[in-house]
Design a binder for these strands. Sequence first.
DNA 1: TTGATTAATGTAAACGATTACTCTTTGTTT
DNA 2: AAACAAAGAGTAATCGTTTACATTAATCAA
Lengths: 342, 342
Amino acid sequence: MPTIKDVAKQANVSVATVSRVLSKADTVSEKNTQSVLEAVEKLNYKPNALGRYLRTAHTKTILVVVPDITNPFFSNVMKGIQTLANEREYDVLVMDAEHAHFDTMKCFDMLEQKQVDGLIMLTSRFDQQTLIDLSAEHSIVLACEYLEGTTIPTVSIDNVSAARKMTEYLIDLAYTNIAHITGPMETVLGIDRLRGFKQALQARTIPVKTSYIQEGDFSVDSGYNVMFKLLAMEDRPDAVFAANDEMAMGAINAAKAFDLKVPEDIAIVGFDDIRMASMFTPQLTTVSQPTFDIGQKSMSLLLDLLNKEPLTQSQFVLENTLMVRDSCGHHLKTKHDKESPV
Amino acid sequence: MPTIKDVAKQANVSVATVSRVLSKADTVSEKNTQSVLEAVEKLNYKPNALGRYLRTAHTKTILVVVPDITNPFFSNVMKGIQTLANEREYDVLVMDAEHAHFDTMKCFDMLEQKQVDGLIMLTSRFDQQTLIDLSAEHSIVLACEYLEGTTIPTVSIDNVSAARKMTEYLIDLAYTNIAHITGPMETVLGIDRLRGFKQALQARTIPVKTSYIQEGDFSVDSGYNVMFKLLAMEDRPDAVFAANDEMAMGAINAAKAFDLKVPEDIAIVGFDDIRMASMFTPQLTTVSQPTFDIGQKSMSLLLDLLNKEPLTQSQFVLENTLMVRDSCGHHLKTKHDKESPV
DNA sequence: TTGATTAATGTAAACGATTACTCTTTGTTT
DNA sequence: AAACAAAGAGTAATCGTTTACATTAATCAA
């Protein structure tokens, strides 16, 4: 494995000259540039990244911590991050937080150990004070979830208003007994979507029934199980808003198991618009998040941080859109109307 | 940011001593060990990984190249890799190959530049000779796809026999006009599954109709489009075997668009058993691959390579299992039988 | 008591790049 | 022609570790 010294010897110049032609054709004569290039070619020289990193004190690598890489929502965000990262010649290290051996401190250490230049967190379930302290010295951005009262750059959608919009839409379709399967109550996501749900009901002076609010954990199974509870109630809801698509799918399958038709007998909607949402039967009415853009924007923000560019703002909220498909029964409800009420 | 020198000064010992207590409590006196530890604590010292890496010439980081991180099949394999990697204190770098800016050479360079210790490839679509050359000097393992006639360690399932098994099962259910939606014909996966399909027909002396073999590209959309072609034929097939679940779902949706009931009017089966397969309506009959295990086994193999442990064999084929669910119509076909023919 | 062995530590040389600084050499200005 | 500036290239310090080797002190056998 040739080093820069070997190249220098081969090209009959000093290591400095070799380094200069390789980093930027700064001020090296045509002749020397040529012979260095030839030597590089001949020896098949690849600069050792570690040597460079140590000297320049950056690795051109960022770390992204993802709650569950298996979750299509996050893998889309990842893709957005990757795209911009690679374009800017950054590599991306992935850490799966759901993983049993995951130690929250480890990813912070990687920053301090200079192993990565920056950090994008796709979750905020960890010691927040540490994160805040760290962000004073390091480049960190939060995606999907935000942290109250900090200046850590964040990119997400407005989950409260999106959930409110979804709920209001159901109310407009004349559903009166609307239940909500929440996400885990220790996540901002879960809390915000529930808040939006409640706001919509209150705005329309519909009483909020606590029995209609059931906690799930964002998994298909939890959607299925919680739905069973709801369906077993004597005053069964006529519409269910699940806090994500996976739970909505679980809920729909539960309804099917109950011999209920969706949306004829009960409407079920989700949140996220994962790829399967439009493939499912019935096609899922849901809130579409710009996952790819969230990833890309996070990376773009991180890049700004890394380049010490002044940030004009720190909280970026991206647009979401209501995807009206079949599972809400809008076609049933509006068949006598001239126009869809959306 | 304190360095090892600062710690040494603080603890009143040499840097060597500090390094010694930190790497392994080799032969440092109780007293010094103690004061070093205290100094580390007091200064909040984190060893700079780059310095260490440069010296020790390994990064404890591996690279995995994945065709599409968004594809649930691969993200499961990734999870398997991650799990073992983290357990053994390795970090994992991800590279998305479908990404526009992806340069096949780049991942090879990362090996040569000492940026990563090893490489797991979840695809074999790239210059194979380069890969073979490289594997002589570096630690590389291939997952999911194999390469004929090399000694590069590989872990996958036997796609030929799995596809044959699936097809035979359809034949056993008395379907006679069976079509196959293949994967891309430049992938080993696509080729092998087609081969298995043909083998099954030939073994039962059923003629292989070329019009029943249509190429897709593993995407939902291609499954949908290709299915339209098949359904438009005058001698429409009564069963369709798609080379992956996503195309099977696309095909099912196409059938629905044709007002055909699955499996009553036409049976459609897939391959891979992605998470959605059992959530779909109808539930997908498919071949289950041990994705997590594939990932874990690949990582385990890579670890062996890295530790220069002798490999007993280089091609590992893992078990697959036929998941009989609803989309193949087995319950319709066997309602008069006493037992399921599986 | 002496020489040999061992344990504990320190000194300094790597690792492979980048880059501040210095030194020629050449070209320009007056 | 002298003085100065600029261009091109080399020397060596540096980044933060690890570790081979040297050194010292202490223990032990004869």
